[in-house]
């Protein structure tokens, strides 16, 4: 394994990032706007007496955490799309870079972008609504790890589909992850949902994290079982998505990956 090749792939996207307003909007603008809009909505409801300050906190932190899932998935998928859009895929894959190096390169890139995006939104949440995400304490890194793994699993699933169907389904890079949102209990507690939704949500690891987050905010602690279960499910999902990625790679090579568009 070559660290230099991994860095080469990361560098390619960092160079692109600083010159590409679309990617900056993805990383900074949408997450910030999310924090602003949701925060103001809940703030208004509080003034009308329909919700409480702790609920503002729960919603704003939910926004921050959901952005981890969304950005992790989207960063991976869009980074791969960039290779297809710029017709660079043949040049890239004709270098000695290995698939495992590509995977690690995309993970590294996603981590760097996460740090940028999360820092900005966390500072905004504190500045605008005095919501301090660090208040989650040692649970926060656990939540981040679990959600990021879920985002990466979804990201590699999306890339795998691009390897099979090309850019005709590129909208999945931005829209795909939202299909799991209703079952992830991001903004509401699972207990208030219909039974069938609760049953479906058991299979979505993000739901355990958001439930745990609310428990920490409302009671000061949470049993770790749910969070650890979500990490376990995410490990399984990430492994499955990487296997699917490798299989899709074989399919793309069979068809000729240089012509993938």
């Amino acid at each position: 394994m070559s660290k230099r090749r991994i860095w080469g792939l990361v560098l390619r996207h960092l160079y692109n990032f600083r010159r590409n307003y679309d990617r900056m909007v993805d990383t900074f603008y949408w997450p910030s706007l999310d924090v602003l809009v949701w925060g103001l909505t809940i703030f208004a409801l509080t003034r009308l007496g329909q919700t409480s300050p702790v609920q503002i906190k729960a919603i704003v932190i939910a926004v921050l955490l959901w952005n981890i899932v969304w950005r992790s998935q989207s960063e991976l998928a869009v980074s791969f799309l960039e290779e297809l859009w710029s017709e660079n895929i043949a040049n890239l894959l004709a270098t000695p870079i290995r698939k495992v190096e590509m995977i690690l390169g995309y993970f590294t890139l996603s981590l760097i972008k996460f740090c940028l995006s999360f820092t900005l939104t966390a500072v905004l949440a504190y500045a605008l609504y005095q919501v301090n995400v660090l208040g989650l304490g040692f649970y926060l890194p656990l939540f981040i790890i679990s959600l990021m793994m879920f985002g990466w699993a979804a990201g590699f699933l999306t890339i795998s589909l691009f390897l099979r169907f090309g850019t005709t389904i590129q909208t999945l890079a931005w829209a795909g992850i939202w299909v799991v949102m209703p079952f992830s209990a991001v903004y509401y507690s699972l207990s208030v949902l219909p039974d069938w939704v609760q049953q479906v949500s058991r299979f979505f690891p993000a739901a355990y994290v958001f439930e745990a987050m609310r428990s920490v905010l409302f009671t000061g602690s949470t049993p770790l079982d749910g969070v650890l279960l979500s990490v376990g499910i995410n490990l399984l999902l990430l492994s499955l998505s990487l296997v699917f990625f490798l299989q899709s790679f074989k399919v793309a090579l069979k068809n000729g990956i240089g012509h993938l568009k």
Partner: peptide, 23 residues
């Protein structure tokens, strides 16, 4: 003929990336 370089990157940046990829 069927490959290009990432168009938003400068020529130097592209070559820098490939310098890393080819070590």
């Amino acid at each position: 003929g069927y490959s290009r370089l990432p168009w938003r990157l400068s020529v130097w940046e592209n070559l820098d990336v490939y310098g890393h990829l080819y070590e």
